[in-house]
Amino acid sequence: MNDSKLLMGALVCAAMLSVAPLHGQCLAQEQTIKTLIYDPGQLKPVDSQLRVKVGDPAPPFSLPSLADKTISLAQYRGTHNVVISFVPAAWTPVCSDQWPGYNITKDIFEQYDAVLLGITVDNLPTLFAWTRQMGDLWFPVLSDFWPHGKVAQRFGVLRTDGTAERGLFIIDKAGIIRYISVSDINRRPNLKDMVEALKAIHQPRKN
């Protein structure tokens, strides 16, 4: 190895190690929940390949939910736009405050005839205990636990470690995917981008 390669290697190594403390800013902010959050450290931002694209019909699915027995994507056909929020896993940083944030945006979803479906690959008991910490969520929370991550895999957001990406999909009333955002797993996605996308596809119901 020549000197320049050694220098580059050493600096890259130092830079990577020095970034490690920064993930602290992404940790959930809440007082009590913070002590229960498992911090996996800085993760590979995206670790899967999308299997759908904007313009495709959304893959149909039915999943068990915390509140109802099952929720099917098809039940919203013709009446609602559907925002699917995949988050990596219960009890992890960022996810533990992303949904509480959405919990005060019900009015925005209603404004655009939209429902929000929160999905993780955890089982229902885990999702129950985790979401109890968030207050009463107004949107359904679905478990893509078994067959493990099957729905996440259909969308192409199942990571190689069996967790899901931090992904947002907007499916219009005709069942067509209109917006996809698979963002850095270590950061919370920008709310405004999703709202702008909802606004762009919104066609008010004809009374």
Partner: peptide, 23 residues
């Protein structure tokens, strides 16, 4: 000697990093 200098540089970057991350 050059290798030693490089590791000193790594150490300096590491020492400076926490200050940059959380002031």
């Amino acid at each position: 000697m050059k290798t030693l200098c490089l590791w000193w540089m790594v150490a300096l970057v590491m020492l400076a990093a926490p200050g940059m991350a959380s002031e």
